[in-house]
Design a protein around this nucleic acid. Sequence first.
DNA 1: AAAACTCCTTACGATTTCTTGACCGCCTGC
DNA 2: GCAGGCGGTCAAGAAATCGTAAGGAGTTTT
Lengths: 227, 227
Amino acid sequence: MSKTTLLVIDDELAIRRFLRASLDEDQFKVIEAADGREGLRLAATEKPDVILLDLGLPDVDGISVAKGIREWSSTPIIVLSAREQERDKINALDAGADDYLTKPFGVGELLARIRVALRHSKKSPEEPVFRAGDLEIDFAAHIVRKGGVEVHLTPNEYGLLAVLARHAGKVVTHKHLLAEVWGGAYSEESHYLRVYMGQLRHKLEDDPTRPKLLTTEAGVGYRLKTE
Amino acid sequence: MSKTTLLVIDDELAIRRFLRASLDEDQFKVIEAADGREGLRLAATEKPDVILLDLGLPDVDGISVAKGIREWSSTPIIVLSAREQERDKINALDAGADDYLTKPFGVGELLARIRVALRHSKKSPEEPVFRAGDLEIDFAAHIVRKGGVEVHLTPNEYGLLAVLARHAGKVVTHKHLLAEVWGGAYSEESHYLRVYMGQLRHKLEDDPTRPKLLTTEAGVGYRLKTE
DNA sequence: AAAACTCCTTACGATTTCTTGACCGCCTGC
DNA sequence: GCAGGCGGTCAAGAAATCGTAAGGAGTTTT
């Protein structure tokens, strides 16, 4: 397993240095962003395990950064801020942040809170087999069956189907699908989805022209129907 | 859906009173334990959604209570403590607590952190479903049902309905609706609302001519009735 | 080296959704 | 009565989104 990656979004060089020194040691890989735009970009491309976010950024507001990340990812966000107004804390937490630490804080506490965040993001054990109609997905073995017979899917096709199945019945947004399968940096390439959904339908639908399983929610995303 | 249940484990009557007063209102059901043994018992029997735990208990140490709960449950634990030593925080967080608030704290912040905890634990349990008459809105799945059958809505229609549902029973002004769905720049285009409210009524009202659910407040805005 | 496979890209027609304007009815104030 | 504001309805054209087929690039298999 590769090292746990932390993304630090803070405009002050001194803070970044301090955090790097405290965290860089053996356990974490630390990457840095000096402003909000860079932070959003790195959050998408590097897929960090935890994000440490300062509120007082030069370009975008920290709250907006948190919201931007939450649009497609549930990576834990710990806000580090000098602002100790209750209003700021509530806003940040409701915007999607998972924790809020007021500067100055102890490194030990920060580490403990990072451990909490990592504990949370550990995925719960999943169902080994998914079923919907005559469709069967064996997540462990990466095998898909339709009406009992195995259907070969390419890695991207399987990834797409797996995400839809994990949220079966729900609409999954374009952004979310792209982030999960291609990575956060591809969240605008929604034409990929059209191509691959088409291929999935050809392999899995009785009548690919009239999809019953893999339905489109125009302008929003796609859905794997359960019944 | 039953109310969200909070378990307060604290030996000081004053604190319990204060928390009950702050939390009891409409949104939460609050149950109390005055010591650790009672707390563990209630955590098991009542299955609360969130546990608020004081560290300075008369019988068992708060840390041990947290560990005891973690042996069989992953219910979120928020520690409320007068101790502000970093050592205490680290111990509590590593013992399984999900958050640590130092007394005195603001009620608003506590509520925000409870919301964070609920957000985390909401991975499997029931979805937040809004109901009014035979109308059902499943926000997580992005699905609207009327009388049990699914109704397809376009993004704008869904957005409009969602805003009204979020303020169910209250009047939502034209400006507010337009700002939420179309963006702040469209706050004068109240004609859009007439068109889309018409479409929503067609899809959701028994008699679109005589709306019972989606009512007009002349000169002000619209309202989704709750009954 | 050829064949097979997967991924990405492009183009274009089909479909869905959004916007806009015309028209109607109702109520109110003049 | 009647003008004017407000809200509702309808439909057509514009715009955005979607589905599909096909081909090239890169990689792996045979």
